[in-house]
Design a binder for these strands. Structure first.
Length: 253
DNA sequence: AATTGAGCCAACCGCACATTA
DNA sequence: CTAATGTGCGGTTGGCTCAAT
């Protein structure tokens, strides 16, 4: 048999927390710590389910929470992380001590999405939205051109990476010996912010890359095929993007 | 002054995965 | 090994506030 039921939902309170409830929860956790969320409400004298207590603590009562609005620098970092990680809010929040995933998610949905739309960027893909339309609607064409030029420069970095990667014997030694850390970091960063977030994430998680070592940690043999596929995907994605941006550059210049 | 709509955010829901008996 | 439960996560919603009409 399994564990005991999480909580009998009968008679449990829901909705906004009162000051008294907050006080009880904080007092209990500061004095006893958290062993098991299921027992917390019972021991703290709360008519709430453990899940609700956990949420309240994490999102509102934790003493290490950072209050106040997110700065523009934090917003920029969120955008960058979102491009790499997608909607993995808890992962993104882990880069911001004192901020919660809920807070960042809310901020993304209410503000950053709009900001990106105004900039003509699709918040989902982080790619320019219908560039021709954007060009029409934008009051400042120069801004668009500089955006494209900047993107194009990043693509050039990628192109260099691809050329260098041709010298690497794939897949056998790819991860163990031949990748130059600086080149890798530079290219990985470029790709992860400009191209497919899911691919970059997969890469980040599947490859145990040590930032202090000059080499990349060896991948298990069974992963080499998928790594090869990943590299192929990135290269083809990068090349498509390059072609698209070259086309736009020629068009608008 | 009353109404309406947008913005914001705390909290809930449901799911997936981990853990335990 | 299996089933039940715990935990954490992302998506969604409900209600509050405030500005515009």
């Amino acid at each position: 048999m399994g564990r005991q039921p999480c909580c009998d939902r009968v008679g449990l309170k829901r909705g906004p927390w009162t000051i008294e409830e907050d006080h009880k929860l904080v007092h209990f956790i500061l004095n006893n710590g958290i062993q098991c969320w299921r027992t917390v409400p019972k021991l703290a004298g709360l008519q709430r389910c453990g899940k609700s207590c956990r949420l309240r603590w994490i999102n509102y009562l934790r003493p290490d929470l950072k209050r106040g609005a997110l700065s523009e620098a934090e917003e920029d970092q969120i955008i960058e992380l979102h491009a790499r990680l997608g909607n993995r809010w808890s992962k993104i929040a882990s880069y911001f001590p004192g901020r919660t995933d809920n807070e960042i998610k809310n901020h993304w949905n209410t503000r950053i999405k709009k900001r990106l739309h105004l900039m003509g960027i699709d918040p989902l893909t982080h790619q320019p939205i219908d560039k021709e339309k954007y060009q029409h609607e934008s009051d400042d064409k120069t801004e668009l051109l500089s955006t494209i030029t900047e993107t194009y420069d990043k693509r050039n970095e990628t192109e260099n990476f691809i050329e260098n990667a041709n010298d690497i014997s794939l897949p056998n030694n790819m991860l163990s010996e031949n990748i130059n850390e600086e080149l890798w970091n530079k290219s990985f960063k470029t790709m992860s912010t400009c191209y497919s977030p899911s691919i970059s994430l997969e890469a980040e998680e599947s490859i145990n890359f040590s930032t202090t070592s000059s080499n990349v940690a060896a991948a298990p043999a069974e992963e080499e095929d998928s790594v090869q596929q990943w590299m192929d995907s990135i290269f083809s994605c990068a090349i498509n993007q390059l072609e698209e941006d070259l086309f736009l550059l020629r068009k608008y210049n």
